[in-house]
Design a protein around this nucleic acid. Structure first.
Lengths: 209, 209
DNA sequence: CGTCGCATCAACCGATCGTCTGATGCCCAC
DNA sequence: GTGGGCATCAGACGATCGGTTGATGCGACG
């Protein structure tokens, strides 16, 4: 290799960050910076212009998805490898849509991580097997693909708190009929038939919680 | 120090495991073994008799809580430091009750981890601030302290799937009246008033999902 | 300019839910 | 041996929910 691949690692868990950095350095990569939140990550990337950003999605303050969006807005050519614990639908979809180059779960074997970083630097897309499966099944089944609208999420959040349709209507300054309509759409989109199941599905998909 | 503290690290995430091991070795601890699941952890502890087991709770197969229980059953004097991502009620309570010596979240700063291992080896109890707060508030509020009975969890699981009271009764071979009674108790214990909110609370506490 | 998604509203009806009161049997702990 | 937690059951009532049908206004996109 001519010059080593330059990397910035962003994760709010110090232990995980140390682990990733250690693994990458041992493999001859050059880790030029580490960040504990999204804002730091953005600053470091702008300053150091690394080849790859290894990014955790769930971070305090500026989250991972927002980091990706801003980088793409800046038309940065950096490769973003998302390395996270969760593979909920909304996380994965949001990250890919935002423009992540790769998506790896933290339970991936070390060699996979190393290879993923290399591929990301080369601009290739890498996905964890679990993530790939999830995406594939999502494409196959056109049913429960739909995302909830902002208003629908708002309603569902209140439902999860035990709020009654009438009370939701009052809180949102709409009629009870409207609330019912929203709920009906929510049920359709989530593929359920009642509010309890809707809440459960929402948690499973990372929409709530 | 006379002889270094001997440690086994158990975590199913290779990256995290490497991170923890790296940090501990850099601090002069002797990491004598690493495990990727509970069964391996138990075997290593029995074979190597380390001073401290650094343990992730969520692992495939034999989970962390079960590992702790078995160690205590064996009357092992090993210190168990739980190091995990989650601080849901059920995880924390289960781990402490099982006999964990300490409970640290993965977002803890590196120096805290090092100090926690040292304290654990000395038999002292260490808790993450977040965990300590959670436990304290639990002790303060005698209300939502109660755990669900097995039967109640069973009912709630079905509720989360959108199952109707009547259908639940059929599935569990009891009358609908019984299901309603269980649900009433569930609502009381979780401090909610309807099934949707009960499901949400259960997810928040790690009872479901 | 038409179309589509989103948000809004109405009225009705049957099904379901949640609460209440009250009761029995079991098992474990104190 | 007497509580207390758990699981079981009954009947009945009012409140709430979910489905249905149908309709309007608005912004976006092509």
């Amino acid at each position: 290799m001519s010059s080593p691949i330059r990397i910035v690692v962003a994760d709010d868990h110090p232990v995980v960050r140390d682990g990733v950095v250690g693994v990458l350095r041992a493999q001859g990569f050059e880790v030029v910076g580490q960040a504990g939140d999204g804002a730091q990550a953005l600053a470091l990337v702008e300053e150091l212009e690394p080849d790859v950003l290894v990014l955790d999605l769930r971070m305090p303050g500026t989250g991972g998805v927002e980091v990706i969006e801003r980088l793409r807005a800046l038309e940065s050519r950096i490769g973003v490898l998302v390395l996270t614990t969760f593979d909920t639908d909304s996380d994965v979809v949001a990250a890919i849509e935002a423009g992540a180059t790769g998506y790896l779960l933290k339970d991936a074997p070390t060699p996979d991580l190393v290879e993923a970083v290399r591929a990301t630097a080369a601009g290739e897309t890498v996905l964890s097997p679990a993530v790939a499966t999830r995406l594939a099944s999502r494409l196959r089944s056109p049913g429960p693909t739909a995302q909830l609208s902002p208003r629908e999420r708002e309603v569902l959040t209140l439902v999860a708190r035990g709020t009654t349709n009438r009370a939701i209507a009052a809180k949102l300054f709409v009629s009870e009929a409207t609330v019912k309509t929203h709920l009906g759409h929510i049920f359709d989109k989530l593929g359920v038939t009642d509010r309890a199941a809707a809440v459960a599905r929402a948690y499973d998909r990372g929409i709530l919680g």
